[in-house]
Write a protein that binds this DNA or RNA. Structure first.
Length: 788
RNA sequence: UGGCCCGUCGUCUAAUGGCAGGACACCGGUCUUUGGAACCGGCGGUGGUGGUUCGAAUCCACCCGGGCCAACCA
């Protein structure tokens, strides 16, 4: 298993001792609804990471700072769902509302430091003055109240002296900040509402940005993992911890992409109207993407965890196809769901040559295809087989018989044969129809009793499920389909986007008799139909109710085998996608040409001037633009150029490519350490082949990260490179012997493999080989043998 | 008309600057008393342009595309 970027980070932090060797994560849901499959990813991540490190732990923290929407009922449901998924918070159950007192003191600290103020504007005024993404906000007229006045007002807010909305406490940051979150965010609001845990103790409630980071800090969380939409909030997270002098090491927020599944919505607030509007049976409706709904449908915790594992964790925004969930479900259920027969739409079949009352029992495997137990252990039969009664009258699936079979149809048709699975091969001799012409009964003859092959007339193409008429157990079977037909349902009109027929209730299906005693919550695979789960609420002896968890993978369909025309249409249907993406590409090329291809745009006149000047001084076109936009780099260039005027282009290149990279990737490095004359000297040495480009780069890196002059470092740094063919050639020959397959592939035309051999040499020599020479020697050796 | 983030097979996800790999889906085959499962094989990708480098998915620049942000929600 390869590690995701968060796990790598945790491991790195552990190694560097960043958090005193602790790993503490947390799962912080707001108890305003039910947990859904999107939460499962976060659960797997947070609890997973905690369990992967000795002493690691994951807190369950209810983020209950909004009394309007939160309920104890949701807390209980969340705890139940998390346990069901297989996670355990141990002693670490917390509530943000546990910290109300501490949070309130932190707020006072900010007030006293002049970093927070009471704003008496109306909600509309605050919104108005916040500005927009394009325009800066303006200061509130209440922004400069004295700390004393703020303190007094805030005290009185807490005392309940003011009505809702009269005042808010705001952080005093910057109303013109580019990040909207930083435009004096609201810390506290007045809300005279009963909190499900604290009743009417508090007339003021902290806002998310304020409560969240401080709750993490109070719990000494090390890694605060959240989804991508909180990226903008990281700045206020860090700002607040800094301004209240939160103890170090401080928790650090890292964002990852949420789990988004096609045809599903993963938003508690969008799910609630579906429940409250009566569009589904409840939060645990089997069609709901909630953990409770999935559980009721028969999806196992293992399947959900498997899905999360398959999906991984990254920062890329992504949509997962339902097929992946389906796979995870089937993969798990295939192993654990014993097979049974269920006929959803019964068609009566009379076996004419079976005498009345002359039934027999047939044996069928509970797990066909599973390697039979050979250890002879106790219970082998009971585990491995089931018994089915067979009599004169049976029911088969109406769909398994066609009066006019389409091409490719392998099941029963007039005059044709089919196998009653595990029991007998029958031939259809007669149809009985009602006045409406509807087939109501088939008269068949048993040709072969059980056994393999098909007896006379060659092999039978298909085996169908069936139940014996007198012993079959009636059951209600609920067939579920996706709640939304479109992959990306419109969040503003979910009720209108609901698919019709997402729940189909079959009132009287027939089950093989041993299932008559099924209790709630049992998994079965009804052969050829799918995976089913006896409803945990409604199923009991005497009233059997099953939910379809998932269908079987479809291997055949009438459309597919209806002729060659259809697949072709399918292909052409896929073409527009290809064409449109090609269109995008074409558009991009067109634009590029307009702006002069690789010649980057120079938006302002000032930059244009600098660019022209740099080009005149000898900087290359592509690098000049970089320097024109970076005053610091440009300054170094201007200072270094006179030292080595002929190397102007090289100097500019070093600056634009290598210095920019080092500055961007390593915070320890600093441009201040680089003397312009050293840069010029470096460029000259490389230009005159005193140093290889690689050596130059190593020197530059050393200067930027550790400091020192070029001369010093050239003397002290071990820059030696192995360029001797007498050393390199044997090494490469050895590699060629070790990887004969790659040699063949290289000679077969896979020239990219040269990089593999050079890379191996670089590794073997600890990076000290001269790669140019190594490449040369390797090419020669690989090529020479080619001629033999 | 801003700030931040993100672009690798259809989808999800890997690759200290050194073989672009895996999974799902799809297609084909073997096997099969589930048109299932299993097994084998195939298809298919680094958004674009330029630059740096012996070597770029990876570094630099620009362009294109996508996401998030203007609740007294979280």
């Amino acid at each position: 298993m390869t590690m995701d970027f968060i796990r790598s980070m945790v491991r790195r932090d552990l190694k560097t001792g960043k958090h005193d060797g602790r790993v503490v994560t947390r799962f912080p849901p707001e108890p305003n609804g039910f947990l859904h499959i999107g939460h499962a990813k976060s659960l797997c991540l947070n609890f997973g990471i905690a369990s992967e490190h000795p002493g690691g732990r994951c807190h369950l923290r209810l983020d209950d700072t909004n009394p309007d929407t939160e309920k104890a009922e949701f807390v209980e449901a969340m705890k139940r769902d998390i346990r069901w998924l297989g996670f355990d918070w141990g002693e670490h159950l917390y509530h943000a509302s546990d910290y109300f007192e501490q949070l309130y003191r932190y707020a006072h600290l900010l007030v006293d430091r002049g970093l927070a103020y009471v704003d008496s504007s109306t909600e509309a005024e605050i919104r108005e003055r916040r500005g927009s993404i394009a325009e800066p906000g303006v200061d509130s007229p209440w922004r400069n109240r004295s700390p004393g006045e703020n303190r007094d007002l805030f005290l009185r807010m807490r005392a309940g002296e003011f009505p809702d909305g009269a005042h808010v406490l705001r952080a005093k940051i910057d109303m013109a900040h580019r990040n909207m979150v930083m435009r004096d965010p609201i810390l506290y609001r007045i809300r005279h509402a009963s909190h499900y845990r604290h009743g009417d103790d508090w007339p003021i409630y902290p806002m998310y940005d304020f409560a969240h980071c401080l709750s993490d800090s109070i719990e000494r969380v090390t890694h605060s993992l959240c989804t991508l939409e909180f990226e903008n909030n990281r700045e206020i997270y860090d700002w607040l911890l800094e301004k209240v002098d939160a103890p170090r090491p401080r928790p650090e927020q890292t964002e990852f992409a949420p789990l988004v599944l096609d045809h599903l919505i993963t938003s508690k607030s969008k799910l609630r109207p579906l429940v409250e509007g009566g569009h589904v049976r409840g939060w645990d409706d089997p069609r709901m993407p909630t953990l409770a709904g999935l559980r009721r449908r028969g999806v196992t915790p293992e399947a959900i965890r498997k899905l999360c594992e398959m999906v991984g964790v990254a920062r890329t925004q992504s949509r997962v196809e339902m097929a992946k969930l389906d796979f995870a479900i089937r993969d798990d259920l295939n192993e654990r769901a014993p097979r049974a027969f269920c006929v959803l739409d019964p068609l009566r079949v009379v076996l004419a040559n079976v005498p009345e009352g002359k039934g027999r029992m047939v044996r069928a495997p509970r797990f066909p295809g599973r390697t039979p137990r050979t250890d002879g252990g106790e219970g082998t039969d009971a585990e491995g087989e089931r018994a089915l009664p067979l009599g004169r009258v049976v029911y088969i699936e109406r769909d398994d018989f066609r009066e006019d079979p389409p091409p490719g149809f392998r099941r029963l048709a007039p005059g044709g044969r089919v196998r009653l699975k595990y029991a007998a091969v029958i031939r259809c001799e007669e149809m009985v129809k009602d006045e409406g012409g509807r087939v109501v009964e088939l008269r068949c003859r048993v040709e072969t009793e059980a056994g393999g092959g098909g007896g006379r007339g060659g092999p039978v193409r298909a085996a169908i499920h069936w139940v014996e008429a007198t012993s079959a157990a009636p059951a209600e079977v609920r067939l579920y389909d996706r709640l939304f037909a479109m992959p990306d349902p419109p969040l503003d009109d979910l009720a209108g986007a609901l698919a019709t027929g997402s729940e189909r209730v079959v009132a009287r299906a027939l089950l093989e008799p041993r299932l008559a005693a099924t209790g709630p919550g049992e998994h079965y695979q009804f052969e050829r139909l799918g995976y089913f789960f006896s409803d945990p609420e409604d199923c009991r002896e005497g009233r059997l109710v099953f939910n379809r968890t998932a269908t079987l993978r479809e291997g055949w369909s009438e459309e597919k085998s209806a002729g060659a025309g259809v697949p072709t249409e399918g292909e052409s249907a896929a073409k527009p996608t290809t064409a449109s993406s090609g269109g995008d590409g074409a558009r991009g090329v067109g634009r590029g040409r307009e702006t002069g291809g690789g010649d980057p745009e120079l938006p302002t006149g000032e930059e244009r001037e600098r660019y022209d000047e740099l080009v005149a001084l000898g900087a290359g076109g592509a690098t000049a633009i970089t320097l024109a936009r970076s005053p610091a780099l440009r300054e170094v260039f201007l200072a270094a150029r006179p030292v080595f005027p002929e190397g102007a282009e090289a100097i500019a290149g070093w600056l634009a490519n290598d210095v920019a990279r080092l500055l961007g990737s390593d915070e320890r490095s600093g441009l201040g350490r680089l003397a312009p004359k050293d840069l010029a000297g470096l460029a000259r040495a490389v230009a005159e082949d005193e140093l290889s480009h690689r050596q130059g780069r190593r020197l530059l890196e050393a200067i930027l990260t550790e400091g020192g002059t070029l001369a010093e470092l050239r003397a002290t740094l071990d820059l030696e490179e192995i360029g001797d063919e007498a050393v390199l050639a044997p090494m490469i020959r050895e590699l060629m012997e070790a990887f004969p397959g790659r040699v063949t592939a290289y000679r077969g035309g896979q020239r990219g493999l040269l990089g593999f051999f050079v890379g191996q040499v670089m590794q073997k020599t600890g990076g000290r080989a001269d790669p140019r020479k190594a490449s040369e020697v390797a090419a020669a050796l690989l090529g020479r043998a080619d001629e033999c």
